[in-house]
Design a protein around this nucleic acid. Sequence first.
DNA 1: CTGCATCCGCTTCGATACTG
DNA 2: CAGTATCGAAGCGGATGCAG
Lengths: 203, 203
Amino acid sequence: MARALDVVGDRWALLVVRELLLGPRRYSDLLEGLPGIGTNVLSTRLRDLRAAGIVVHRRTPKPTPATVYELTADGRDLRSVVDALVRWGARRLTAPDTDDILDPRWFVGSLAALIDGKTLVEGTTYRLDVDGAPFTLDARGGDIAASHGPPPAATATLKGTLRDFFNATRGDKTAARRLVVEGDVRAANKLLAAMTGAATRTT
Amino acid sequence: MARALDVVGDRWALLVVRELLLGPRRYSDLLEGLPGIGTNVLSTRLRDLRAAGIVVHRRTPKPTPATVYELTADGRDLRSVVDALVRWGARRLTAPDTDDILDPRWFVGSLAALIDGKTLVEGTTYRLDVDGAPFTLDARGGDIAASHGPPPAATATLKGTLRDFFNATRGDKTAARRLVVEGDVRAANKLLAAMTGAATRTT
DNA sequence: CTGCATCCGCTTCGATACTG
DNA sequence: CAGTATCGAAGCGGATGCAG
């Protein structure tokens, strides 16, 4: 464990990994996704994570010149660590302070960790539109992989505000009913059922 | 996750938790179990962890006056986080450097995280004597709980040097055969089989 | 505009020394 | 044994500068 903490024990390392678990991101995306990190710290973290073989950066000269950072296979394996932290931290999140949950990305990432993927049908792909931002939820191998951006093809789509999504995970069925469902209604209801109360479950 | 890291994201916090997962410990035990921590940092961490409801300290006036620190239920739940880190870090532990693995406590704690508890018989209690230090391994609920000290009653006992134990987890069958088995041989062999190659498995 | 590097004030760390 | 006090060094958060 000490070896693991040598690599991802720094204050921001796991938060950077968490951002990249949703898909590749640019330097400035990471900066705004990690409020308060400071540009020097981010560049140092990225360099360290790159040296540790957790992150790679790649240029995308296709449409616009930019560099994106993404996780290696080793980095993606940190999802078990991130998920464990999310699950443990979710129970201590007693008060849904208005300032606490700001970013749809954070919500979707946590959601994937909190839902029991085994209650969903293997291979189902969901599209979530949270405050207008599209995300993909993929049920495979008994757990759920989240990524930003819309899926090529979705089994079902859920749309709604971040607040309604959030309250739904805390057991608010009224909020859950406010979410707009499209596509396979049966599949959507399975996800809704799994979501409901996800943040308050002990497991 | 940010909330979780607020509490256990500090440099030594999870290492302190890891020590206490093996059972209650005194201040000076923790100091020597965490090389390089510095007494002021330890006292600060313990105060913070106590304020967060993860650790409590209790006086034991029975035989000798001393203060022991132990985890609350919330603190014990961090085992999933610690185990995830151990499993992730184990694969990066390529070289079995002679200086890397020093403490039998660290080995036993990692072992419990790396073994698949479902291959053992529910309720089995093992005693491990590693370099003469006794430990308890309890198979319950599909995973394995490790603690320091001998069990009241053991189904089987394994004795050996730390090096032999360690090499056994890396697939060295010669080292595994050097371990002395007492008690229920069938149960002991189940554990040995689960141990063998535990550190190199991908899962 | 993106992807950093540099400087600066401040907190925290690690080590040592000291006390109830 | 169980910490507190002190101190230099390192790292963090923030602002700014700057090349591609």
